[in-house]
Computed example of a mutant assay.
Amino acid sequence: MGDFLAQHLPNAGRVILSQISSGSKIPLAGVLLLGLPYDASSGAIYAVVIFFMGLITSWEDAATNNPIFAEIVPVKSRTSIYALDRSFETMLASFAPPIVGLLAEKTYGYKLGDGIRNDDPKINQENAASLAKALYTAVAIPMALCCFIYSFLYCTYPRDRERAKMDSLIASEIQNIEMESSELVTIYSQLRQFDPEYLDGEFESDVTVGERSLVRK
């Protein structure tokens, strides 16, 4: 899907898809955590919501991040950028469990121990609701921020992509010139064995011109 949108909207297709993916997590997580009843008979509905959530909300890396990195990052730096992206995302994700715990206990009234019966259905249901609200907060705010940050790519991505194409073209031209100059020098050194006096006057000037053009590049 990312490739399809990139063909029709080269400057915005992948960004739009990533915003759809990250933005859809907010309502789907709301339905899953806050909208559905806490009832064992609702298992089929939970399964449907989880299926669509897993299907739609996993497009950022495969359809946007990795392809854009492949387009704008030089080959020699690509491995480092991929590793940095993974490590940065994992580092941020590691803060989620303690944040959810603090939100559930301090903000949404999750009740812990100290004489509270763990088998009390009412308290368990209240704790489940508190935990669901904390989880939703930990999902909705980062996803809204993520969707907003992707908006900057509308300005930076086209410019970075064109610059990467230009750098690749320049590197290719330099490589071609170096190969041509190397071949010219090799031919000159081979032919000089047969007629050195003629080549000193004619062929050497061609080599000099090729080397000068390489220096100017």
Rank of each mutant, 00 (worst) to 15 (best):
T90I: 10
F51M: 11
P158Q: 12
D114V: 15
I141T: 10
D85L: 15
K133R: 13
V15A: 06
F95Y: 09
G109S: 10
A44K: 06
S22N: 02
L153Q: 11
D160G: 04
K25I: 03
A96H: 03
A63F: 08
I170F: 07
Y110D: 04
W59Q: 01
G35L: 12
G210T: 01
S205F: 03
K122Q: 03
R117A: 09
R216S: 15
T57M: 01
V31P: 00
L5Y: 00
A171N: 14
I187N: 07
E126V: 09
I68K: 06
T186E: 14
I72Q: 00
A70V: 03
A12R: 11
A129W: 03
D120C: 06
G109Q: 10
T137A: 12
A47K: 04
F148K: 05
A93G: 09
E204A: 09
N124P: 07
D160C: 14
G201Y: 01
I56G: 08
D195H: 07
D200I: 06
P97G: 09
R216W: 15
E204K: 06
E126G: 07
I81T: 12
L102V: 15
R212Y: 09
T79S: 13
V215W: 12
C146A: 08
P67M: 11
A70Q: 13
M166Y: 03
T186F: 10
M1G: 05
P196N: 06
E60S: 06
E89W: 06
V185H: 10
T156S: 14
Y157L: 14
S42Q: 09
V139M: 02
V73N: 02
S181W: 00
D114I: 15
K25L: 04
I16C: 05
L214I: 10
Y150K: 02
S77G: 00
S213T: 13
S22W: 06
F95A: 11
E204P: 08
F95E: 05
A140M: 10
G30Y: 02
S80K: 15
A96Y: 03
G109N: 05
M91A: 15
E197M: 07
A47P: 01
L5I: 10
V73D: 04
I20V: 14
V15F: 04
A83T: 15
E197Q: 07
P196M: 06
E173M: 14
R117C: 02
T64W: 08
G210A: 14
T57G: 05
I56H: 05
S77N: 13
